[in-house]
Design a protein around this nucleic acid. Structure first.
Lengths: 114, 114
DNA sequence: CGGAATCCTGAAAGATACTG
DNA sequence: CAGTATCTTTCAGGATTCCG
Protein backbone atom coordinates (compact mmCIF):
# COMPACT_ATOMS: atom_id res chain seq x y z
CA UNK A 1 0.00 0.00 0.00
CA UNK A 2 1.51 3.26 -1.10
CA UNK A 3 1.71 6.27 1.12
CA UNK A 4 -1.05 8.71 0.38
CA UNK A 5 0.22 12.25 0.07
CA UNK A 6 -2.75 13.45 2.05
CA UNK A 7 -2.16 10.84 4.71
CA UNK A 8 1.59 10.54 5.15
CA UNK A 9 1.41 8.56 8.36
CA UNK A 10 -1.56 6.32 7.48
CA UNK A 11 -3.61 7.98 10.18
CA UNK A 12 -7.03 6.39 10.62
CA UNK A 13 -8.58 9.73 11.35
CA UNK A 14 -7.44 10.86 7.93
CA UNK A 15 -8.97 7.77 6.36
CA UNK A 16 -12.30 8.83 7.81
CA UNK A 17 -11.68 12.44 6.88
CA UNK A 18 -11.06 11.55 3.27
CA UNK A 19 -14.59 10.23 2.95
CA UNK A 20 -16.20 13.51 3.83
CA UNK A 21 -13.81 16.22 2.66
CA UNK A 22 -14.79 18.07 -0.42
CA UNK A 23 -16.42 21.44 -0.33
CA UNK A 24 -19.98 20.17 -0.59
CA UNK A 25 -19.76 16.57 0.55
CA UNK A 26 -20.98 17.03 4.10
CA UNK A 27 -24.04 18.86 2.82
CA UNK A 28 -24.77 16.19 0.25
CA UNK A 29 -24.42 13.50 2.91
CA UNK A 30 -26.61 15.46 5.25
CA UNK A 31 -29.42 15.54 2.73
CA UNK A 32 -29.14 11.90 1.76
CA UNK A 33 -28.66 10.55 5.26
CA UNK A 34 -31.90 11.61 6.80
CA UNK A 35 -34.20 11.52 3.87
CA UNK A 36 -35.46 9.84 0.80
CA UNK A 37 -33.29 9.08 -2.19
CA UNK A 38 -32.84 12.20 -4.25
CA UNK A 39 -32.54 12.95 -7.91
CA UNK A 40 -29.68 14.94 -9.35
CA UNK A 41 -31.74 18.07 -9.77
CA UNK A 42 -33.33 17.74 -6.37
CA UNK A 43 -29.89 17.83 -4.83
CA UNK A 44 -29.01 20.75 -7.07
CA UNK A 45 -32.01 22.67 -5.75
CA UNK A 46 -31.15 21.85 -2.15
CA UNK A 47 -27.61 23.11 -2.73
CA UNK A 48 -28.14 26.08 -5.02
CA UNK A 49 -24.56 27.31 -5.17
CA UNK A 50 -22.97 24.03 -6.20
CA UNK A 51 -22.05 23.66 -9.85
CA UNK A 52 -23.25 20.68 -11.84
CA UNK A 53 -19.66 19.67 -12.29
CA UNK A 54 -18.91 19.55 -8.57
CA UNK A 55 -22.18 17.81 -7.77
CA UNK A 56 -21.37 15.13 -10.31
CA UNK A 57 -17.80 14.72 -9.10
CA UNK A 58 -18.71 14.47 -5.43
CA UNK A 59 -21.52 12.01 -6.10
CA UNK A 60 -19.21 9.81 -8.14
CA UNK A 61 -16.59 9.76 -5.42
CA UNK A 62 -19.15 8.89 -2.78
CA UNK A 63 -20.44 6.13 -5.01
CA UNK A 64 -16.94 4.77 -5.48
CA UNK A 65 -16.56 4.60 -1.73
CA UNK A 66 -19.78 2.61 -1.29
CA UNK A 67 -21.45 5.47 0.53
CA UNK A 68 -24.24 5.81 -1.97
CA UNK A 69 -25.71 4.15 -5.02
CA UNK A 70 -26.56 5.70 -8.33
CA UNK A 71 -29.62 4.30 -10.05
CA UNK A 72 -30.46 5.21 -13.61
CA UNK A 73 -34.05 4.77 -14.71
CA UNK A 74 -34.05 4.22 -18.46
CA UNK A 75 -36.67 6.70 -19.49
CA UNK A 76 -36.90 9.99 -21.32
CA UNK A 77 -36.14 12.42 -19.87
CA UNK A 78 -33.64 10.48 -17.78
CA UNK A 79 -34.09 9.98 -14.08
CA UNK A 80 -31.15 9.28 -11.81
CA UNK A 81 -31.56 8.60 -8.13
CA UNK A 82 -28.96 8.75 -5.43
CA UNK A 83 -29.53 6.67 -2.36
CA UNK A 84 -27.44 6.22 0.76
CA UNK A 85 -26.15 2.67 1.24
CA UNK A 86 -26.26 0.63 4.41
CA UNK A 87 -22.55 1.14 4.69
CA UNK A 88 -23.02 4.84 4.18
CA UNK A 89 -25.37 4.84 7.14
CA UNK A 90 -22.46 3.83 9.35
CA UNK A 91 -21.17 7.36 8.88
CA UNK A 92 -24.14 8.63 10.84
CA UNK A 93 -22.69 8.45 14.39
CA UNK A 94 -19.47 10.08 13.26
CA UNK A 95 -21.26 12.92 11.51
CA UNK A 96 -23.58 13.37 14.46
CA UNK A 97 -20.64 13.74 16.82
CA UNK A 98 -19.04 16.25 14.50
CA UNK A 99 -22.27 18.18 14.18
CA UNK A 100 -22.62 18.41 17.93
CA UNK A 101 -19.06 19.54 18.37
CA UNK A 102 -19.59 22.12 15.64
CA UNK A 103 -22.73 23.47 17.28
CA UNK A 104 -20.92 23.69 20.59
CA UNK A 105 -18.01 25.44 18.96
CA UNK A 106 -20.23 28.14 17.54
CA UNK A 107 -21.33 28.87 21.11
CA UNK A 108 -17.74 28.79 22.26
CA UNK A 109 -16.81 31.43 19.74
CA UNK A 110 -19.66 33.68 20.82
CA UNK A 111 -18.43 33.58 24.39
CA UNK A 112 -14.98 34.54 23.24
CA UNK A 113 -16.31 37.64 21.54
CA UNK A 114 -17.79 38.99 24.78
CA UNK B 1 -21.73 36.69 10.11
CA UNK B 2 -20.38 36.34 6.60
CA UNK B 3 -20.66 33.18 4.60
CA UNK B 4 -17.45 31.24 4.63
CA UNK B 5 -16.49 30.11 1.16
CA UNK B 6 -15.57 26.74 2.57
CA UNK B 7 -18.88 26.50 4.40
CA UNK B 8 -21.47 28.02 2.12
CA UNK B 9 -24.45 26.71 4.09
CA UNK B 10 -23.05 27.21 7.59
CA UNK B 11 -23.05 23.46 8.12
CA UNK B 12 -22.08 22.52 11.65
CA UNK B 13 -20.23 19.49 10.42
CA UNK B 14 -18.05 21.77 8.37
CA UNK B 15 -17.42 23.95 11.41
CA UNK B 16 -16.04 20.89 13.15
CA UNK B 17 -14.21 19.80 10.04
CA UNK B 18 -12.46 23.12 9.74
CA UNK B 19 -10.75 22.56 13.07
CA UNK B 20 -8.99 19.43 11.94
CA UNK B 21 -8.44 19.78 8.23
CA UNK B 22 -4.95 20.52 7.12
CA UNK B 23 -2.55 17.94 5.89
CA UNK B 24 -0.82 17.38 9.22
CA UNK B 25 -3.31 18.63 11.78
CA UNK B 26 -4.76 15.29 12.83
CA UNK B 27 -1.27 13.98 13.45
CA UNK B 28 -0.30 17.04 15.46
CA UNK B 29 -3.47 16.74 17.51
CA UNK B 30 -2.87 13.05 18.00
CA UNK B 31 0.55 13.71 19.49
CA UNK B 32 -0.60 16.54 21.72
CA UNK B 33 -3.83 14.93 22.86
CA UNK B 34 -2.45 11.93 24.60
CA UNK B 35 0.85 13.17 25.80
CA UNK B 36 2.94 15.82 27.41
CA UNK B 37 3.31 19.29 25.99
CA UNK B 38 5.81 19.27 23.18
CA UNK B 39 8.40 21.66 21.88
CA UNK B 40 8.51 22.76 18.28
CA UNK B 41 11.40 20.54 17.41
CA UNK B 42 9.97 17.60 19.26
CA UNK B 43 6.91 17.80 17.07
CA UNK B 44 9.15 18.19 14.06
CA UNK B 45 10.92 14.96 14.96
CA UNK B 46 7.66 13.12 15.51
CA UNK B 47 6.46 14.27 12.09
CA UNK B 48 9.63 14.09 10.01
CA UNK B 49 8.14 14.98 6.63
CA UNK B 50 6.41 18.16 7.70
CA UNK B 51 8.10 21.41 6.78
CA UNK B 52 8.83 24.04 9.40
CA UNK B 53 6.51 26.36 7.59
CA UNK B 54 3.53 24.01 7.74
CA UNK B 55 4.21 23.07 11.33
CA UNK B 56 4.22 26.73 12.28
CA UNK B 57 1.10 27.50 10.31
CA UNK B 58 -0.90 24.59 11.67
CA UNK B 59 0.14 25.31 15.23
CA UNK B 60 -0.84 28.94 14.90
CA UNK B 61 -4.25 28.07 13.53
CA UNK B 62 -4.88 25.58 16.31
CA UNK B 63 -3.81 28.21 18.81
CA UNK B 64 -6.20 30.73 17.29
CA UNK B 65 -9.00 28.24 17.72
CA UNK B 66 -8.21 27.70 21.41
CA UNK B 67 -7.20 24.13 20.78
CA UNK B 68 -3.70 24.59 22.12
CA UNK B 69 -1.52 27.13 23.85
CA UNK B 70 1.88 28.38 22.83
CA UNK B 71 4.26 29.16 25.66
CA UNK B 72 7.52 30.93 25.02
CA UNK B 73 10.24 30.51 27.62
CA UNK B 74 12.48 33.58 27.41
CA UNK B 75 15.85 31.91 27.28
CA UNK B 76 18.66 31.37 24.84
CA UNK B 77 18.28 29.29 22.80
CA UNK B 78 14.53 29.82 22.82
CA UNK B 79 12.14 27.19 24.04
CA UNK B 80 8.53 27.09 22.89
CA UNK B 81 6.06 24.62 24.21
CA UNK B 82 2.72 23.59 22.75
CA UNK B 83 0.08 22.25 25.07
CA UNK B 84 -3.45 21.09 24.43
CA UNK B 85 -6.10 23.21 26.12
CA UNK B 86 -9.06 21.97 28.11
CA UNK B 87 -11.23 23.04 25.24
CA UNK B 88 -8.99 21.18 22.85
CA UNK B 89 -9.61 18.06 24.88
CA UNK B 90 -13.27 18.23 23.92
CA UNK B 91 -12.17 17.17 20.45
CA UNK B 92 -11.20 13.80 21.85
CA UNK B 93 -14.55 11.99 21.48
CA UNK B 94 -14.99 13.25 17.97
CA UNK B 95 -11.53 12.18 16.91
CA UNK B 96 -12.01 8.82 18.59
CA UNK B 97 -15.20 8.22 16.64
CA UNK B 98 -13.47 9.15 13.43
CA UNK B 99 -10.54 6.91 14.20
CA UNK B 100 -12.82 3.97 14.80
CA UNK B 101 -14.71 4.55 11.59
CA UNK B 102 -11.40 4.84 9.76
CA UNK B 103 -10.15 1.57 11.17
CA UNK B 104 -13.38 -0.12 10.22
CA UNK B 105 -13.22 1.33 6.75
CA UNK B 106 -9.80 -0.16 6.16
CA UNK B 107 -11.32 -3.56 6.90
CA UNK B 108 -14.25 -2.76 4.63
CA UNK B 109 -11.91 -2.06 1.76
CA UNK B 110 -10.05 -5.33 2.27
CA UNK B 111 -13.30 -7.26 2.00
CA UNK B 112 -14.14 -5.47 -1.21
CA UNK B 113 -10.85 -6.57 -2.76
CA UNK B 114 -11.73 -10.24 -2.23
C1' DC C 1 15.87 26.98 18.46
C1' DG C 2 11.97 28.40 16.41
C1' DG C 3 10.69 30.64 13.41
C1' DA C 4 9.62 34.57 9.04
C1' DA C 5 9.82 35.88 4.06
C1' DT C 6 9.58 34.60 -0.78
C1' DC C 7 8.66 32.12 -4.53
C1' DC C 8 6.59 28.22 -6.83
C1' DT C 9 3.58 24.16 -7.99
C1' DG C 10 -0.32 21.04 -8.31
C1' DA C 11 -4.80 19.98 -7.17
C1' DA C 12 -9.46 21.57 -6.12
C1' DA C 13 -12.95 24.19 -7.47
C1' DG C 14 -15.42 27.69 -10.58
C1' DA C 15 -17.27 29.40 -15.24
C1' DT C 16 -19.10 28.46 -19.36
C1' DA C 17 -20.69 25.99 -23.28
C1' DC C 18 -22.34 21.84 -25.26
C1' DT C 19 -25.08 17.03 -25.42
C1' DG C 20 -27.73 12.20 -25.57
C1' DC D 1 -32.76 15.74 -17.05
C1' DA D 2 -28.41 14.72 -16.02
C1' DG D 3 -24.73 15.14 -17.21
C1' DT D 4 -19.39 16.21 -20.36
C1' DA D 5 -15.72 18.93 -21.95
C1' DT D 6 -12.60 22.87 -21.58
C1' DC D 7 -10.63 26.54 -19.76
C1' DT D 8 -9.48 29.44 -15.87
C1' DT D 9 -8.84 30.67 -11.05
C1' DT D 10 -7.61 29.89 -6.32
C1' DC D 11 -5.01 28.38 -2.65
C1' DA D 12 -2.94 24.75 0.34
C1' DG D 13 1.29 23.15 0.71
C1' DG D 14 6.40 22.61 -0.66
C1' DA D 15 11.29 24.44 -1.33
C1' DT D 16 14.52 27.49 -0.10
C1' DT D 17 16.82 31.25 2.21
C1' DC D 18 17.43 34.26 5.98
C1' DC D 19 17.07 35.83 11.09
C1' DG D 20 17.01 37.18 16.49
Amino acid sequence: MLKDKKNPQQCQIVVALNMIVGKWKPIILDHLLHGEPLRFNELKKLIPDITQRMLTMHLRELEEHDILTRTVYPQVPPKVEYRITEYGMTLQPMLKTMQQWGANHIEHMKEKDN
